[in-house]
């Protein structure tokens, strides 16, 4: 498989400043390792799902790929060019190949400008003008299921689902090779969510765009992704083709995550494994394996040595766990 996007060793650290009281008492700034050595590959026309709970660093990965954040280490190679090493000016011309859609499209739309001008803006930045521009905007509106008569309206006149259609139209305009979708449907009602997911699938088939689909909803991610990577505290703990990951997960975190999804069957009698505790702070992650503080399989070795992400039996399946296996997870005894 040749990759469109190849991310290697990506790290992004934030300095969490000690407050004024902290500084007076000699406290040091914390180093928050939001993303810590992440590798990802996305082929042309493919959807990679990136899942994990809040604070795991999944959105920061997306922002680093677009260079909305400057990575502290690692390479982001798109079509043979390393984006991490480019100057801001060089990056600008590459932005037409990579676009992003955010969770809350309202935050990326200017309330005082018509939605048509928001969709036109990226096209104008790349030199499109006049009737060609107007035609292109009208095409984009039609393509995402909005009417030509809506072009001159303002953002507040649109529902959440329609605003997300605008966000997609805007990202689509420059015919990017890759779109980073950061929780694109999590703010939407379920009936509207289905409309947007279907639209994304249709657009991918039509234009062959690759997606990095960042979300916390495991059912949505399974539905749309070809492959999935699971993140925990800044690291990828498991990655596999979607069918493998959901049918035969090997990392205890992936198993627990899947077991925690509520299922719309009142007679469902799964042996639910309920993880204890919360996500530890990424500024002070546990030694060794970062999941060990919540893991029912953890032993002293896990505190000592961090498990690397290594290939499992099946193709394209990699797991970072000393005790990876396909068996069911034992119930946590400590409560």
């Amino acid at each position: 498989m040749s990759s469109l996007l190849e991310v290697r060793g990506l790290s992004r650290h934030f300095r969490a400043k000690a407050g004024i009281v902290g500084r007076l008492t000699g406290q040091r700034d914390d180093l928050l390792r939001a993303v810590d050595g992440v590798d990802l590959d996305i082929a042309a026309g493919e959807t990679l799902g990136l899942v994990g709970e809040s604070g795991c660093g999944k959105s920061t990965v997306g922002r680093c790929i677009l260079r909305l954040e400057r990575p502290d280490a690692g390479t982001v190679v798109l079509d043979g060019r390393d984006l991490a090493g480019l100057s801001d000016g060089q990056m600008r011309s590459l932005r037409k190949d990579v676009q992003i859609v955010f969770q809350d499209p309202m935050a990326s739309l200017n309330p005082r400008r018509s939605v048509g001008s928001a969709v036109a803006e990226p096209l104008m930045n790349f030199g499109m003008t006049g009737t060609r521009l107007r035609e292109a905007v009208a095409d984009l509106f039609a393509r995402v299921g909005l009417g030509r008569d809506q072009i001159d309206r303002f953002p507040h006149e649109f529902s959440g689902g329609q605003r997300q259609r605008l966000g997609i139209a805007r990202a689509l305009g420059l015919r990017p090779r890759l779109i980073v979708l950061d929780e694109p449907v999590s703010a939407l009602d379920v009936s509207v969510q289905a409309q947007i997911i279907n639209l994304l699938i249709d657009l991918q088939q039509e234009f062959g765009i690759a997606y990095l689909f960042i979300a916390h909803d495991l059912a949505v991610v399974e539905h749309i992704s070809h492959r999935v990577a699971v993140m925990y505290l800044g690291k990828v703990v498991e990655t596999a083709p979607t069918a493998t990951l959901y049918r035969a997960p090997q990392h205890p975190y992936t198993k627990a995550l899947l077991a925690a999804v509520p299922v719309d069957d009142p007679d469902d009698s799964r042996n639910r494994v309920i993880l204890q505790g919360d996500l530890p702070s990424p500024s002070n992650p546990p030694s060794g394996c970062r999941f060990r503080t919540r893991c029912p399989l953890a032993d002293p070795y896990c505190a000592e040595k961090e498990p690397p992400l290594v290939a499992a039996d099946e193709e394209q399946h990699a797991v970072a766990c000393h005790y990876a296996s396909t068996g069911p997870l034992p119930q946590n005894t400590s409560a």
């Binding site: 009936s191 289905a194 409309q195 279907n198 699938i201 495991l218 399974e222 959901y246």
Partner: peptide, 27 residues
Amino acid sequence: LGLLGAMPRLSTRGGTRHERLLEIPGN
């Protein structure tokens, strides 16, 4: 019926992957 059809499900729970979900048109 529409809400149940629009909801993506885990495939181990009867969901289908990469197929169109049932939409409820409009708002």
